[in-house]
Nucleic acid binder design. Sequence first.
DNA 1: GCGATAAATGAACGATCGATAATATTTGGG
DNA 2: CCCAAATATTATCGATCGTTCATTTATCGC
Lengths: 215, 215
Amino acid sequence: MTAEGESPRRQSKGERTAGRILDVAEDLFARQGYEGTSLRQIARGAGIKEPGLYNHFAGKQALYEAVLHRALNPMAEAMAGQIESASRLRDYTDLPSVMTDLLLRHPQMAALFQQALQGDRESVGNQLVTQWLETLFQQGMRSLEGLEPAVTPNAQAQDRETLAINVIAMFNLTTGYFLSQRAFSILAQGDLQDPDNIARQKRLLHRVVRAMLVS
Amino acid sequence: MTAEGESPRRQSKGERTAGRILDVAEDLFARQGYEGTSLRQIARGAGIKEPGLYNHFAGKQALYEAVLHRALNPMAEAMAGQIESASRLRDYTDLPSVMTDLLLRHPQMAALFQQALQGDRESVGNQLVTQWLETLFQQGMRSLEGLEPAVTPNAQAQDRETLAINVIAMFNLTTGYFLSQRAFSILAQGDLQDPDNIARQKRLLHRVVRAMLVS
DNA sequence: GCGATAAATGAACGATCGATAATATTTGGG
DNA sequence: CCCAAATATTATCGATCGTTCATTTATCGC
């Protein structure tokens, strides 16, 4: 999530500094993890001294949660909008593609979410992401199980566990793509964010969804 | 990787202690990450004081690399054996299933590998895992691209980028499963290591591979 | 069982961590 | 333009990090 594009006079100095801090912190947290990132690094990246951070955030933990919150909100809203406006059947199965487009605009969010998800269960960060996943997964479950009979009338009903495993697979497939830039450069030259490769990934996502529906 | 099952007199005291240290370190590194784990924690878990660690490992970094090495070697050998003994075509497409069985015996290795893969590019740990992935991926690529015409004579040849994306997807699908226990408990009750769920996952893996082959 | 060697310990080091207090500077509304 | 409020800085804190050293204790081949 990069800084808002508003005109520099619409924001007060404090707001601009807070935005810069969030930008730097998001990048560093995603690349180095929570414990691996120091407030000194963040302050230096934002062009201020360390104690200045405390004029905008209560502490390291609060800053981390603010980063997650700012990254999670647009994603949640956009996905909610997509889900709500899904009138035709195929709109539901497009969910991974939509999520890919959203992650494409903020590629480091994938790493941020995965870390928060693997992190301390009691932490606010973990609960934030877990809560988001909850609604997302519930919707994914409803999609798969609701569509299946319509699309493939002769398909047998799948048990809840299989549905869950499928939804989780789609999530891992979608986010994992953005965590695999290094692996990709081993196998082929190029950038995973290249439109051609994004198109290839979306094609794969659709094929996998279809493979899940037709059992 | 749990301690060797050898009789307690076959190992010297030092070897036994080193093994305990590796066990504890592997668990903590996988759950909390490299920076998030302190040598004090590891020492306490192994039942010794902190300086005692230095009788067995040169330092934190060396201990971390030893953990990765001990976890990576059996996996690499087992996969190499599977690949070498693959006479029939389907042996190749079974590779994700074989990897699932291996990871099932040491579920925390998935987290370990992902962390090392995302971590510092210069680090020895990253290079260790990257090197392993390289051979694994090369083999996966060769499988997919070599098998395709045989299995589906009417399928068009896929470009290298698509192959790479497919191989990466299979890797993310296979390892991501073992990182998703929390997500699974949101959607359904149960343990992802339950044989029934493992069977469901393997069924999914095979379906996805098939979906990749028949373009 | 003796003795060399391996292993474990207590004490302490410098470095860095997140955080606080006191002070200086800048901002921006009246 | 002024002055209260917002923002930034300097100095410093205690805690914890990884690591080292000198010493004690345990191991195990002979």
